[in-house]
Every structure is written in C-alpha cells, then in structure tokens.
C-alpha cells in the first residue's frame, strides 16, 4: 500500500532502475488553505503513470503534463497554482489556497 511520501520516493527509485524516465514533483510552498503539506510528492513516469499527490486531485493532471515536459527537457521547473479561474483553461485549487510545486527529473 502506497500511503506515505517515503513509499512514493521508493517507487520513484524502482521505476528509474527499471529503466523508465521519471520525474518527482514536490510541494515546496503553500499559502492559505492547502490540501497537502509542504514536502508532499507526486512521482510521474514517461508514460504519464503517477503515484502520490500534491493536492486533493485538483492540479495533478496539469502537474503530470508539466512533468512530461520536464522529463523531455531535463531542466527542473517551478509551478504555481491558485484559485481556479473558471474563465481560463487552467487547473486551480477550489479551497482558495496557493501552492508552489517543484518538478525535477530523476537523472
């Protein structure tokens, strides 16, 4: 059962050692009400499979998409998410908080 951020990092290592390209997304900052605490991880493989969470499911889709770019480009990226803007085609947090997510490739 994958319940803790530590189990998730162990999985990231397994995936990489199986030869898959892997990215790790980490919540590095939160402002206001945020669903997951600083330090929470989401790991993503080259096929878009993912484990863990950086929010309550609100922004994972977009983080996975960005992670695939990071895997491709190799350079880390900082993402920020705020309140959902219904007029924009962009993911957001319905809880009203803001989070910063650092996405990096496992080399």
């Amino acid at each position: 059962m994958l319940t803790t951020d530590e189990d998730i990092l162990a999985k990231a290592e397994d995936w990489r050692k199986e030869g898959k390209a892997v990215a790790i997304a980490t919540v590095v900052d939160t402002w206001g009400s945020a669903p997951r605490p600083v330090g929470s991880h989401l790991v993503i493989d080259e096929d878009g499979n993912f484990l863990g969470s950086v929010s309550g499911g609100c922004v994972e889709g977009e983080v996975v998409t960005e992670a695939l770019d990071v895997i491709e480009a190799g350079k880390p990226k900082m993402l920020e998410f705020g309140v959902a803007d219904e007029t924009a085609w962009r993911a957001g947090l319905s809880c009203g908080g803001r989070i910063a997510v650092y996405v990096e490739k496992v080399d």
Binding site: E6, L9, E13, K17, K105, V106, D107
Partner: peptide
C-alpha cells in the same frame, strides 16, 4: 534529482 541521491535517501529511511 540524481538517482544516487534518491537511492541514498531511501537507504537512510530504511
């Protein structure tokens, strides 16, 4: 993250 750092981090936890 370098794979060796990730491996070391996981080892410390174990």
């Amino acid at each position: 993250m370098r794979l060796d750092l990730l491996t070391a981090l996981n080892e410390e936890r174990k």
